[in-house]
Nucleic acid binder design. Structure first.
Lengths: 179, 179, 179, 179
DNA sequence: CCCTAATCGAGACGGTACGTCCGGTCTTGTG
DNA sequence: CACAAGACCGGACGTACCGTCTCGATTAGGG
């Protein structure tokens, strides 16, 4: 059960990493709008089919590259550090995040995956923390406000993203609880 | 006041309207991702060049159509009615708004136009109202929170957009002022 | 009967000349393949419609310009001087002639006009001279050989066009008569 | 002799043949002037890019189709049969030949290819035969006269093309030799 | 030590949209 | 009326990507 591999050449893990890197490199270099599967494959030194074999399209490549790289980078111990870390870390991923959210609007299939899995998992963490630390606050609503503000900055004024802004949003959440 | 028309055949205003309508019709019918300049021109009964003559791309067509149609639909007299109306009216424009925000991420040129003009004018209204009615609240921050929450719903959970949600965000603004 | 003109602004003869010159200038500058009605009108300082009002298309503009300019440039007194002059003068009109023959192949309507009128009138002159000076030679065949050789050089090896080549073709005609 | 195939999917020879046939079919059906790359691709059941991948434009497609189809159709054993066959076979290819010669005038790049390769190879055969059978005749001049007359008929009076006309031109060549 | 099977790089394939160019027509105001 | 200007519809151009396919070569088990 462990490997579960039948015959045939095994998947090349190095190609996977090369594709991840190529995608992120090109993304920051020229923007998501100019990102192409062919460009990724070329830069990764890989056949185009190898990309399509593992991912449905460039959005999923980027999403996979992002989640692989950003895994566990954010503290989830308490509400304050989670929100601060979320805002603090965001600037590093602005190009990817903008592209992913754009694609989610254009491709309904990817949109569902993106909202349910990527956004959903982060919402779940925040809602859990709010439920524990701010029992008077509606976790759903808190998530909308926190992530709404975060994404609005990511999409329209990324230069304003700072850890300090996370503190302001935290203050907002607490003022909500006091009502 | 002279009209400023020089020689030559004047612009066909009917074609302009036909293009606007065609763009919005196709947008709601098949989604922004499948919207095509050629498709718009065909449905409007117009040559493709006529579209390119007046707009740089499909995003600007949609933006122009939207602002033409939605002009003065929103009450700007006081903060409460503005925010409520903004949330109440949003569901009607979800397909357009999602497409425009997506394009703003993919095309930096359009992104700047979109943020500065379309989003900027709405921010200006809100900030003015906040400045008058909630003097203790930072208008910039208020705009980020209100429009951030609005856009987050538009982009990820459009079914949740209701006038009632506008009231919740208003309450949030007021709790901010009380701190 | 002299003017015979009804009301309205009279035709601008200067524009006609400007169009002729513009067409020939652009033709030698960039080749018939890059010649456009719009380009001609622009350079002539004339509206596009003014060109279409007088000629069906660019080929007829060039043909008209050519026949206007080259009128009676060729001696038609005797066979020898006619053939020599025809070959001697040809190099000056190579760009126009190549374009006109090309258009005649692509546009059947213009082709008929071109063959019947432009080529036909020159054939008639040659056939008349042959009939008078070389009674043993079939005038039709002689025209095919003389103009065939001429056009072949115009179309494929214009650098070889010289008055001396006209003499060789004349010798050919005379050898035909001696058989 | 190894075939010289590197990696990658090999060229689809059936598509090549389909494109050739489509081009010639459309050419005789509607004329070279209405021939379109897109039309060829459509009729051949082929993507447009596949045409552009192998040929620079429609003229080269037609030229390739023609030389592929007409290969070895003409006897080159002796002067008499070569000239007769050339005139006898020409009527079948009139639409293609007219289009190719037209394009050669409009597109200098194609013109050079056409004159050097297509016309040049036929000239070489004729000049070789003339050199062997009519040593008193200048082969270059003979080629100009024979092909000049042939092309003049192709371009302006295709109905006159017959094998008998080839005999007349042969007689002309022989009369030249006797001078 | 071959045999089967899956992956790999490469690149051609059918499609579709792009943005540009030009043709030929029309609609203005001015002379 | 003709004229300059210029917008209009139509349609071909050549390019760029998409996602699929077909090659020969490679790299693993399993017989």
């Amino acid at each position: 059960m462990s490997g579960g591999r039948g015959p045939g050449r095994p998947r090349d893990e190095q190609a996977k990493r090369a594709i991840h890197e190529a995608a992120l490199d090109l993304l920051v270099a020229h923007g998501y709008g100019k990102l192409t599967i062919d460009g990724i494959a070329r830069r990764a030194g890989v056949g185009r089919q190898t990309v399509y074999r593992w991912w449905p399209g460039k959005a999923d490549v980027v999403l996979d590259a992002l989640t692989t790289r950003a895994a566990l980078e954010i503290e989830t111990a308490d509400l304050t550090s989670f929100v601060r870390a979320t805002f603090a870390v965001a600037p590093r991923y602005v190009p990817s995040l903008r592209g992913l959210m754009a694609e989610a609007q254009l491709d309904p299939g990817f949109g569902e995956r993106f909202v349910d899995q990527f956004l959903g998992s982060r919402r779940a963490v925040l809602m859990d923390l709010v439920g524990r630390e701010l029992p008077d606050v509606d976790p759903e609503h808190a998530a909308d406000v926190v992530f709404g503000t975060l994404w609005y900055l990511v999409l329209t004024r990324p230069a304003s993203l700072t850890a300090a802004y996370g503190d302001r949003v935290l203050a907002l959440l607490r003022s909500l609880g006091r009502v």
